[in-house]
Design a binder for these strands. Sequence first.
RNA 1: GCGCCGUUGGUGAAGUGGUUAACACGCUAGUUUGUGGCACUAGUAUGCAUGAGUUCGAUUCUCAUACGACGCC
Length: 370
Amino acid sequence: MKIKYNLLKEEKHTNARLGTIETNYGTYETPMFMPVGTQATVKTLSPEEVKACKPGIILANTYHLWLRPGEDVVDHAGGLHKFMNWDGPILTDSGGFQVFSLAKPKDITEEGVYFKNIYNGDRLLLTPEKSIEIQNKLDSDIAMSFDECVGFPHTREYIEESVERTLRWAARGKKVFNNERQSLFGIVQGAEFEDLRKHCVEELVKMDFDGYSIGGTAVGEPKEMQYEQVEYSCKYLPKDKVRYLMGVGDPIDIIENVIRGVDIFDCVSPTRLARHGHFMTMHGKFNIKNAKYKEDFTTLDDECDCYACKNYTKAYIRHLIRADETFGQRLLSIHNIRFLIRLTEDLREAIKNDNILEYRDEFIKKYYGK
RNA sequence: GCGCCGUUGGUGAAGUGGUUAACACGCUAGUUUGUGGCACUAGUAUGCAUGAGUUCGAUUCUCAUACGACGCC
């Protein structure tokens, strides 16, 4: 089935939305945070451990699975869910972000984007049609259009050109899309230019996607500009479709962008920060490797209900991380993912109570207070 | 006891008669936003066993002392 978004309530003082999203694998509340499982695994965690963090959807990556093990292997396994033993909804990114992170300007053509295979150096062409074909085979619940994610800084001239190309790519992908169980999202680009964002939204809506993503943010631009880009996109997006802000996961950014009307977020930060020894709490982001935790026998976060916080001390986790033990990375990953999901639970409650601005102000005070 | 070699930071060590003593690990702190998973950045010996001498100048050359490895009685 196609996903279905139900708008339940709009917060009284802001554009924040409370909703549900119906999927092949159940109905989940929004705002939502999606953990990232690039290579069909949330790094260091088992599906059971991810599940215990109470996520809705998780994310996997077309580019990486295309290169390894290949979409046919996943297809023959019976699809991504069976392959990775995940019985919840999955969203696949299209490879658009890899245009930003891996490709050089000269590699971007009208037909598609040339990449160097990171594993063996082969020159590969990823096109909008190919990206959709791969995602159809992966059989995720939600597929993304293949877009160009442009970094910062950039010129208006280039963004104008890029938005048109992204729109043509969206149309090409939609034309070959062929999976009844799967939904397809369009991606709004246009950088910090309101008229270009508006134009992009209008053209995508004409194509009638199952949901809309906001792209081209969290690529090095100032925070205020990110929030503007989200405003310029949400302002024109239809209310009856879900909105996914790609790649944003800083706690403050999640709050600010929920306030501006975003429903879904994803970010590698909780797992990457964890692998590098950092953990988040309401009182800020901390480095477990710091000497001050050497004999700190308290838990990471006394407000947290995760497995790590229920069973282990900072001193022990510090020891594991410093000893390069993967169990330490697992414990911090579990904690950080659960932290961001708890944040979305709080935000849903704040929308119900029409006090999200108070929640934001109090959170910022605590988070930067340290 | 004699001979010979050695002694550089928390560790393993490189090195030179003349500005800031290489590098690695460790340690201290920071960064990380649709992930090229165990990364990156910065700091970390005012001092080269101790004492004396040669020299304009010594961690580097000489002598003595201490400590250590090896060989011989």
